[in-house]
Design a protein around this nucleic acid. Sequence first.
DNA 1: CGCCAGGCTAGCG
DNA 2: CGCTAGCATGGC
Length: 303
Amino acid sequence: MERGAIDCESVPGGLDLFRTIESGQSYLWRRSDDACYQNVSAEDAWYETALDLEAAAIGEDGSGTDVVRIRQHDGTLEWEATTDPVPALRRMLRLEDDLEAIRTSVPDDPLVTDAFDAHWGMRLVNDPPFATLVSFICSAQMRVERIHGMVTALARAYGTHVTVGDRTIHAIPTANQLAAATEADLRSLGLGYRAPYVLETARMVADGEDPTAARTLEYEAAREHLTRFVGVGEKVADCVLLFSLGFDEAVPLDTWIRSAIASHYPDCDRGTYRETSRAIRERFGGTYAGYAQTYVFHHLRTG
DNA sequence: CGCCAGGCTAGCG
DNA sequence: CGCTAGCATGGC
């Protein structure tokens, strides 16, 4: 394993790795102390995953089997990896984002202000597209702890196993790997009614339907395009657009954000997903509305 | 026991 | 179009 570190002083606005990874955006990482989403501090804990680092650096899933481990320690982001992970980490953890500039573009109302103050340093993620698609198909009517458990179960059952030293790391399965499963197999992992959704979407991607085609479209058209995948409605599509495909204006309307709209932005409730989405997106400043959404979501969910 | 969790699909009017 | 029943599972 190669080793290195990224100086967090060079990250504009700083980095809170714990909140970035354990805020329900990314299901890529496992903690080496196996304590993800147990409300335990990640001080000195390593996060690890197996993936294709070269592909991840350009926003693709790839089929490779690299391993990377990271932790935040002494003002640096330490890493260990089978090959140079820095370009992939910069992209996936969005280390170029200027948090101060982003905060300037979102409203300074009490809820957003409290959320940014409470979780400063949390960054959006930019994960590989298919891994994100599968994760958020699984997210329907699930708590984040269990989504993480389901994705972990999928990785152990179908993902590529990579052994480094005495540790075995499981990659999130590729579309081809998942397409070979059966619905009964996926139900036995606890996916419930999401099992056929994951399977059918994996088969679609394995057959050539490309979720990254949405990148070339205007935002609302991109959201509509992603709903072609089974198990993907407007909300899951917004999550994939925000956490993987670079649409920072996407505001997923989940139960927590709907609750926030009801209590803090009631004029933004326009009845339909599309119109409510437009209203809250505008209220959150447009360009980086998804950043405000993610801070508010995490603030409410952990409060 | 009932209720809820980062909802979606199919089938209805 | 919009609306709703039904859908798995585990934790509290």
